[in-house]
Design a protein around this nucleic acid. Sequence first.
DNA 1: GATTAATATATGAGTTTTCATATTAAATGA
DNA 2: TCATTTAATATGAAAACTCATATATTAATC
Lengths: 177, 177
Amino acid sequence: MQAPRENTDSDASPGFVSDYLLYLLAAASDAASAQFHQTVRAAGLRVPEWRVLACLLDEDGAMITQLATVALAEQSRLTRIILQMEKRGLVVRRGDAADKRRVRVHLTPQGRALATDLVTQAKVHEAVLIRRLSGGDGARLKPALRSLLEVLEPSMPETAPREMHQKTGSQVIENMD
Amino acid sequence: MQAPRENTDSDASPGFVSDYLLYLLAAASDAASAQFHQTVRAAGLRVPEWRVLACLLDEDGAMITQLATVALAEQSRLTRIILQMEKRGLVVRRGDAADKRRVRVHLTPQGRALATDLVTQAKVHEAVLIRRLSGGDGARLKPALRSLLEVLEPSMPETAPREMHQKTGSQVIENMD
DNA sequence: GATTAATATATGAGTTTTCATATTAAATGA
DNA sequence: TCATTTAATATGAAAACTCATATATTAATC
């Protein structure tokens, strides 16, 4: 509360938000996804449904919980989404013999065809997008994002962190409320 | 349909999704935001409400539509969110004298105090996060994201594209459905 | 091996969010 | 100026989403 600039209109001073990492991430994700998500919608799918299909193409028979993680959706939502997808004939749910709590989700031929088609389109879209980025940014972006995810993720047991007996790992980011 | 690898369990082949730019963006945004958004929740705010406050600190008296854009939320949602925030005493809505369709949103002292506090925390959180990124990734990320946004955004009339009379501008990204 | 804890999925219920459209006001243009 | 189009916000109703918790099953502990 110092300079009472009235800021009547057409100011657009840089400000905090437009340079805030979390905003840049969200805005970039939103804007980039909006493009391809139109294609997804046109195929009659909602975004998490598309993610599920892509996921299952990578790993058929995934469990609901895994799919929820990758599709960035909550478990109860995923449960309902999978039920809907089953009704539409895109996937089938099968109980896991070894662990009867689990539900394994498999692509139907129809689901696989749709998934394959969309993944192909996604790859093209991605290539075009990256090509349009000036200079090295296209090349830099993915590694930087992976680096960020590594720092943030609860470090999946894949490439397991052997020999780490003192509980130093997975310390919570300090400075948070 | 060639190698019928049964992929029974514990495979985790790299796959498409985990290297797909749009997934990396969404996952990184989600993971990074999750951290700070806990603080936001603890302050009794939902995410778009926090964005509105931050926004208004940058530009008090913004219109609903502007806020919707920056808060990455739809207009009708923003309308309702602003109404709720007004009830809570965080903002006030004032009609624009010049254009009576517009609603100008202003911070109350209470809203400003909360916004200021959260922005301070956000800056700290951001700094910590960037510092934790290995090597140059911390420095590379923001420019790369800005570059991406530039490519994607409908190029705001700021730094306006004068002399563009043939309708070549704003061509849609090709290769999309 | 009975008891307790943890995991995986499902579901009821309330809240949010979206979609289409209404409403009001300004801009355009004939 | 009057009609037409565009812009800004609001709103009803349907769909989607979240939260807490139920249920079923496996793992752990004693």
